[in-house]
Simulated assay, not measured.
Amino acid sequence: MKQNQQQIVRVSGQGDSKQRAFANALSQVQKQVLKNSSNMMLRIEPLNIQIVSAIKKITTERFLFIFLPRKKAIYDITLDVAVDVCFVDLSHIEFTSQ
Rank of each mutant, 00 (worst) to 15 (best):
R43L: 08
N48G: 07
I49L: 10
Q6D: 09
I77G: 00
Q30E: 13
Q5C: 06
F95K: 11
Q3K: 13
S12M: 05
T78M: 10
A25T: 03
L90V: 14
Q7S: 08
R10A: 10
K72G: 03
Q19W: 06
T78W: 03
F63E: 11
K18C: 01
L47S: 00
Q6K: 11
K71V: 08
R20D: 12
A21K: 03
S12T: 04
L26S: 00
D76I: 11
E94F: 09
F63A: 10
I58D: 11
R43Y: 06
C86W: 10
R10P: 05
V81G: 03
K57T: 15
D84N: 09
V11E: 02
Q6M: 07
F63H: 14
R62T: 13
C86G: 06
M41N: 04
Q32A: 08
F22S: 11
S27I: 02
N36I: 06
V9A: 07
V83E: 02
L34K: 15
Q5N: 03
V29T: 00
D84Y: 00
F87Y: 15
N24W: 00
Q5L: 12
Q98E: 12
G15V: 03
V9F: 02
Y75E: 04
Q6V: 11
D89P: 05
G15R: 05
C86S: 11
L90T: 14
Q5F: 08
A25E: 01
N39E: 14
V52I: 15
N24Q: 06
L79W: 01
K71C: 04
Q98F: 10
K71T: 11
D84M: 10
Q28A: 06
I8M: 02
R10S: 15
K31F: 09
Q50Y: 08
Q30Y: 09
Q7T: 05
T78V: 13
T59Q: 10
A25Y: 01
I44H: 02
D16M: 07
G15I: 04
Q28K: 14
I93Q: 12
S91M: 07
A54D: 15
K72E: 12
G15S: 07
K35N: 14
K56C: 09
V9R: 02
T59M: 07
K18L: 08
Q50A: 10
S91W: 05
D76S: 13
D16R: 12
M40A: 15
G13T: 06
D16Q: 09
L64T: 09
S53T: 12
D16V: 08
L42P: 07
V81K: 02
S12E: 10
I66T: 04
A82M: 05
T96F: 12
N39H: 15
K2N: 09
H92E: 14
N39K: 11
S91N: 12
L64A: 15
F67I: 11
K57G: 08
L47P: 00
L34R: 14
S97E: 13
T59R: 13
N36A: 15
Q14W: 03
I77L: 07
M1T: 13
D76P: 02
A23F: 07
K56D: 13
A21F: 04
V83N: 01
T60G: 04
V9W: 02
